[in-house]
Design a protein around this nucleic acid. Sequence first.
DNA 1: CGTGTTTGACCGGCGC
DNA 2: GCGCCGGTCAAACACG
Length: 364
Amino acid sequence: MEELQGSSAAAVPPPPPPPDADESRRRSSKYYYCNMMTMNDDDFGDEAADGSGARRRQESMVNKLISTVYSGPTISDIESALSFTGTGGDQQPIAAAMDARNSPPPPVVFSPEKVLSKMENKYTLKVKTCGNGGLIAEDGYKWRKYGQKSIKNSPNPRSYYRCTNPRCNAKKQVERATDEADTLLVTYEGLHLHYTYSHFLLGGGGGGSSSTGSKKPKLHPCGPPAALQEAEEEDDHHLLLHSSCRSPAQDSQEQMLLSSPASSQHAAVAAAGCYGEEEEQQLAAPDEHRDNNSIIDDERMNGLLEDVVPLLVRRPACMSSSTTTSCSPPAAAAASPSSSSSVSAWNSNHHPYYIDMAILSNIF
DNA sequence: CGTGTTTGACCGGCGC
DNA sequence: GCGCCGGTCAAACACG
């Protein structure tokens, strides 16, 4: 099992200290996670007894689950960070998100440029290559190489990649580890403000990759889940990125989320200026313009959707995993889209809160 | 012909 | 101010 490198540990803000040793123990306990997943109403005390129904209980459970087993920033944290307007201009966005968890939301004075710049962050992941020497950095995004540099004191050159989406500022640097020939150090910077390309492909019948799928798949193709499945079958050490592990059920979740007026991520993206003015208006009042499905389709075509949350938040550790088990839910769903068990489990909670179960399932 | 890669040049930050 | 270094640009090139 690959672990996040020290550099990544430095890049990713460490979780806040646990309130007590017992809490720390429980947080690190898989047993606790399992118990959380099987909690009944009694576990939530007043919240279960206030009569607000299963929805509230689900929200409570989800919030409690996240706040307990996932010490990193969450969707709501990102929202809080996006609306953060504190005077500490140097404050890291993730740190802001972390702080936001323990403080009431500040007044919303939105500044897209400021927020987007604040959201820039770097984190380094250690990625194993596959046996044939190729890179299995199937992170679901499409990268364009724009430079390569030989680095001092390093025998291996560093390659620079940029997301091909013109409205996305995500970048990454790839270099081979000096001490481990089969390991690549991938440094991500910036956010993807769009779907993963594999997400598109799920609905497109697979085969090929994105709009330029006919091109040769070199270092950073965005292979469809089917390709990932094949790769997985070929080599147990292949990496399966969360973003490449989307299941049809996830699509369903996202569509449901997007259909919801309370789609906070939509709001975040729209508010961040990632949509055009017309798009924002349509998002604000979709019923006045067209049905939700057409909106979703158009937005997919524009490549701008819920992926405002960086991989850092969504599950960076997945990349550092050398096994496929860490992504088992989506991987299983991708491998067997018709599997009712995996899909139902993955889609068991139709909830307006977009809880990426891959995050939870890969924490441990 | 469109798209992506390669690679030398250029630029800015930083230390001395 | 100078040189080093990392990051980016952009023209040339490769590929399907």
